[in-house]
Amino acid sequence: MSAVPPPDRAREREVMRALAAVEDPELPVSIVDLGMVRAVTVRGSRAVVELVPTFLACPALWMVESEVRRSVTALPGVAECEVAWRAGGWSGADVTEAGRRALAGAGLAAPAAGGEVACPFCGSPDVRPASPFGSAVCRSAAYCDRCRTPFEVLKDKRSTGGAAPVSGAPDVPAPVGPPAGGHPAP
């Protein structure tokens, strides 16, 4: 039996840098700043990237998966990349400060750890929910009573702040997307 190579920390940092350039196809923010990347492990020439979906039905997940694989295997020394989808509930609190700024630029807010929402335009906490359903499955609609502007909020799924598991076998089956090679013209 061949020995399992030790984790390659330097290459894991390179993978994280590559992932920072992978944008969510529906949001103007990288998957790292969005808080979707839970762990990266590189052993030998094989990388494992653990992701959490913002919403299970997000139609962009298979695109994210495919872009992650493409970006990571483009790195020198990485021949293979496994994408493992974890359960546990993505939360607005997982979004980085840079991610919040990028989302605000597009009129979107991410809830803070306690569920608080501030207007992405004027920063006021004087906001109220307008509808739990917005223009995409992961968004709800809200209204700012200070600057009188409607905006959208990323829906929070982790109601009690429970941490997502980050190791072991994948918890969530991989998103079922189109076959490799994309959709041929009919």
Partner: peptide
């Protein structure tokens, strides 16, 4: 707003179906 909600919920349900099929079937 009801129509926006129904569309969103419908997408959720189809996404959940995909995940459940994904527990025993590939794409």
């Amino acid at each position: 707003e009801i129509n926006v909600a129904m569309s969103s919920m419908g997408q959720d349900e189809i996404g959940h179906a995909r995940r459940l099929y994904g527990l025993f079937a590939d794409a």
